[in-house]
Nucleic acid binder design. Sequence first.
DNA 1: TGTCAGTATTGGAACGATCCATATTCAGTG
DNA 2: CACTGAATATGGATCGTTCCAATACTGACA
Lengths: 359, 359
Amino acid sequence: MPRGSTAGTRRSGSPPTLATVAQEAGVSRQTVSNALNSPHLLRPETLARVRRAVDSLGYSPNRAARNLRTRSSHLIGLRVDRVVEGTANATMDRFLHSLVESSKDAGYHVLLFSSGVDAGDGADNGLADDGRAIDGYDDLLRSTAVDAFVITDTYRGNPQAGWLERRGAPFVAFGRPWDEPSATHPWVDVDGRTGVMLAVEHLVERGHERIAWVGWQKTSFIGEDRRTGWTDAMHGHGLATSRLSARGDDTVDFGRRAAHALLEKERPTAFVCVSDTVAMGVLHALADLGLRPGQDIAVVGFDDSIAAQVVPPGLTSVRQPLEQVAREIVHLLDKRLSHKPIEEPGRLLAPTLSVRASS
Amino acid sequence: MPRGSTAGTRRSGSPPTLATVAQEAGVSRQTVSNALNSPHLLRPETLARVRRAVDSLGYSPNRAARNLRTRSSHLIGLRVDRVVEGTANATMDRFLHSLVESSKDAGYHVLLFSSGVDAGDGADNGLADDGRAIDGYDDLLRSTAVDAFVITDTYRGNPQAGWLERRGAPFVAFGRPWDEPSATHPWVDVDGRTGVMLAVEHLVERGHERIAWVGWQKTSFIGEDRRTGWTDAMHGHGLATSRLSARGDDTVDFGRRAAHALLEKERPTAFVCVSDTVAMGVLHALADLGLRPGQDIAVVGFDDSIAAQVVPPGLTSVRQPLEQVAREIVHLLDKRLSHKPIEEPGRLLAPTLSVRASS
DNA sequence: TGTCAGTATTGGAACGATCCATATTCAGTG
DNA sequence: CACTGAATATGGATCGTTCCAATACTGACA
């Protein structure tokens, strides 16, 4: 394609500005701005002329200038916390990618940050967890570096949510405000209870009756929510749950010990687990005992992590619709930022079951 | 702490600006700016007064204004490409987090973006891979939204690298310029060959002699590099390699088929794999045959993915020093952006071996 | 032809920081 | 005490965009 003659004032090396384009198209600065932001204001002929100039010069509006003037950055902040290794929770990768994708479609970019504590500063500096919880958020807000936040770790009792809400900062949470029913901020979450019910139904269909639960401690809202999926589905089929439940940490080791204990005393034929991490622990126990997952004992996990996908013989797992979660989050964020009314503050999405050879 | 009296001009609601702070401290705008950017220019007493005002007002410089004036955003762009599921490659999570950490220490933030193609637009629109390769980069550069890029997927023949280099855009690559030895851009990479040698040494120490290689196709530079680690270490110990090697895709299924074929014909006692994904395939094959990993047959993977950490009984794997990689990348980026000389354009880092029960 | 309402276009001011050149203060010296 | 050069502090201009209010254009109608 032919390159238009560049305007005389343009110093090569520095990118074209509105003024450059205006000169090229023979219109004023403001008209070029309108062509980009409110094209309906221009006569079609003028619009075409400006667009041609924009294309031929390869013009893109300077972000910083636009941000300064409009007092918005079109950036969404997301804090990535320390990666916990040895845990099968690989939701982050998938969620992050979906969030970036959805954000792009809505004209936003995702800015990552971490808590303000220096990486090298490993020593405990006496800061309570609460003190760290809002680390990083404040600074980004004050410097107007981001327009809004997405917060993901609402499970520990969400101090950020409360803090951000009080501060009037726009944000959407991935996760319900479990411990604060009065919270009014928008959120998106996955219905873990329903997910576990899917798992139990699936196992019942395969003829299982003694289905054990391996979950998290009672203090975990998410853990208890998922657990009700197990109890409700079991009772719905007239199956007993007593003595078939174990609770502990989200570690492989806990899953293994719990499975050993349950297998020895209660002889379940299937395990439904609160997470893939715990489920991997159950698989460890089966390996210890020479039992074949899927043939001798069925196992179902939660998260559909990569580990679930690749572990022999394949771990059946509840899959969160993270792509949809991301889309909903951006949707809510967009509404919040454009001051449109948000009819329902919370959206609860249904997970699916990825069936593999372990069940 | 006592809140200083806010300056009269400040409209409550909008954050404080340089002018607000200046008025509060009784100095000029420029002096406040200097207090933040060149404190050595101020008399200690003045500096203290300004700092007090900054603190009491909770002032943070407006990013957009600073970016506009300094023509830099202090943002580092990283493209996150489509997540390939069913692959154990979970390096991204760890690397991303490390990159965010290191960037913060150097005063940068990480901006994520994706290729320009709309998420919904799944249909093949006839664009060649090359056309997509620079998608997104151009726009961010032209709008001066980021100062530099980190590129990570140099293995497909790196069209971005060449393009960015020609465009004069600052970037650092995670990965060597395999197919373009003339490239002069800075890069950081992990010495895969050495990693695999570690694995072989470890197995030889345990008494193994028939150690098989399950790798990628010959066209993969990374795959071949890692493979030389196997051949070199084997030959160094006077061990034969012929007929003990298989090559294929980075899939669980390939690993499984390769292991079956090798076990049937060549009776290796150990497998060294080019990736954890392939290694998981080998574990599948062992499960098929009722062989116990670590006891009957040893297996070593590459990447130290989460799957390797949680799969029973634990998969020994070569671990890339991603934290160090991130630190080096940011270090090089920082040099590049501050126009300091870069003595060596490439840094090759040594991996370690995470030993688990599979070997 | 003149008026008018509506549409299309424009120039100046503003966003909040840093760059630059200049003005002021300070300490040391003849 | 005046002079000097270094150390500090300042005001105006500027980055590139959008907001705002005002102007120039258009065609319809009396």
